Every structure is written in C-alpha cells, then in structure tokens.
Amino acid sequence: MRLILVGPPGAGKGTQAIRLVEKYGIPQLSTGDMLRAAVAAQTPVGLKAKEVMDSGGLVSDEIVVGIIRDRIAEDDAKNGFILDGFPRTVAQAEALDEMLEAGSYKVDAVVELRVDQTKLVDRIVKRAEDAKAAGEPVRKDDDPIVFKQRLEAYNRDTAVVVPYYEKTGLLHVIDGMQSIEEVAGSIDSVLQGLDERV
C-alpha cells in the first residue's frame, strides 16, 4: 500500500498517519525527517543537501527525490509507505511517478484531508488561547501568525498537486472537519475499496 496524505497544516495528517502505520505496518515518510536522517548518515544525497542547507538555500527537487528514492529502497518500505509532505509540487509528483514506475510500483491512493481553512485558523487560535489560559506554553506552530504563514505556503505551493492527482483518478477527498474517529473511518473505507480491487 503506497499512500500520499495531502492537506493543510493542522488538518490532522500526522494523527491519521500514526494510526495507518500501526494498522498496515508500513512506515510514514516525512521529507523533513528523511532530510535530517540523510544529512546525519552522510549519504551522498545527504551531503549535497547539507551543503545547500548550510548556505541557507532551499533543497532542490532533485535532492529531495534522491532522498525519497534511497528511503523507499529500504526493507521496511518494501510493502508500502505513507508519504507526508511530499510531493509538494507537480514536478515532484511527476518525478515520484517515474521513480516508482522504474521499480514497477505505483501510488495506490492520494488521500486529501479537506478542511474549512477559516475554521482551522479559529481552531488553532482557540488552542493557543486555551494553552495560555492554562499557563502552558503555546506551541510555536500554534502561533496564529506562524500558522497563517504556513497555510499561505501550503495554498501557494502544495495545493497544486491536488488537481494533478485528481486527473489521474487517484485522489480521494475526506472531510477533515469530522472527528478524528470519523476521519479514520472514512480513510478506512477508501483503503478497503482498494484492497477489494486488487
């Protein structure tokens, strides 16, 4: 099972990915984590990435795709994986397709957690206010200004991959405003349908 989770920050991708990892026994691959791991392991791609990051640049698609290629070749990803935070652009989506085809694999489904972004911002603001009221530190991600910037970056960059996958017929839209349990049930229904097709 090779899945891609798409959705804005705060939509619940991380929560659902943890559950899917346990259910299917496949790893969740986060590009940020993989980049750090490749840099720490000093792999050829990791060294390239470190050089770019140290100079304050953005890691190129070529480097990110190389890191994904190395990671999905590892034993724990042989039966599948969940991609979170990749692909972020249509160029990355096309590179992923080519890479998987070379190994006779394909993406099985793209699950988009679609949310009302206005309500999402309200939810984050409330979470920050509740933390302050309880005398707890506010998570950096929950700072409304930081969160709105992350949301803008998602809408500008990553949201463009949704129409790409819609055209391929792989996209499954889930209402991310439901409860965690309801979202999980909706995802399970989509994946069960895939299992029945195989």
Rank of each mutant, 00 (worst) to 15 (best):
A131H: 08
R69M: 11
L5E: 03
P137K: 08
A93P: 00
L191E: 03
T43R: 04
V162E: 11
T31G: 02
M99D: 06
E136D: 10
I26S: 01
D142P: 06
K48I: 03
D97L: 03
K13E: 08
E181K: 05
R69H: 12
A184K: 08
R197H: 12
V138H: 02
G56E: 12
G80R: 09
R123H: 04
V161S: 06
E166S: 15
D143H: 11
Y164T: 07
L100Y: 07
M177W: 07
R36T: 00
V161P: 01
G185F: 10
L83D: 06
A134Y: 00
S30H: 09
Q192E: 14
R150F: 09
A93M: 04
Y164K: 05
L29Q: 05
Q42C: 13
L151D: 03
Q178T: 06
G10P: 03
D157H: 13
I18G: 09
D76R: 04
G85V: 09
E136N: 13
L120Q: 14
I68N: 01
E152G: 12
I26F: 06
K119C: 08
V45M: 12
R127I: 05
D75T: 13
E98Y: 02
E182N: 12
V64P: 00
V59L: 11
V110C: 09
S30R: 15
G66T: 03
N79S: 13
E182K: 13
G80L: 11
L96M: 09
V146P: 07
G12L: 03
M1N: 00
A159D: 04
S186Q: 15
Y154Q: 01
Q16Y: 09
D122L: 15
V198H: 15
L96R: 07
Q178H: 04
D122N: 14
M1D: 00
A109E: 04
A91Q: 11
V6P: 00
V198W: 14
P8F: 04
K126A: 14
G56K: 13
G7Q: 09
S179P: 05
A11F: 01
I187Y: 05
Q149G: 07
R19M: 06
D70T: 02
L47M: 14
F147H: 11
A153I: 14
K48W: 10
V21E: 15
V59C: 08
T31L: 15
M1H: 03
S189D: 15
V64H: 00
R2W: 07
G185Y: 10
P144A: 09
D142G: 06
Q117F: 14
L100N: 04
Q149I: 06
E112G: 05
G14F: 00
E22M: 07
M1V: 06
K126R: 12
D195W: 09
K132H: 10
F86M: 09
R2K: 12
K167G: 06
A133R: 01
G10C: 07
E101Y: 01
G185T: 14
P9Y: 02
L35A: 02
P144T: 02
L170F: 01
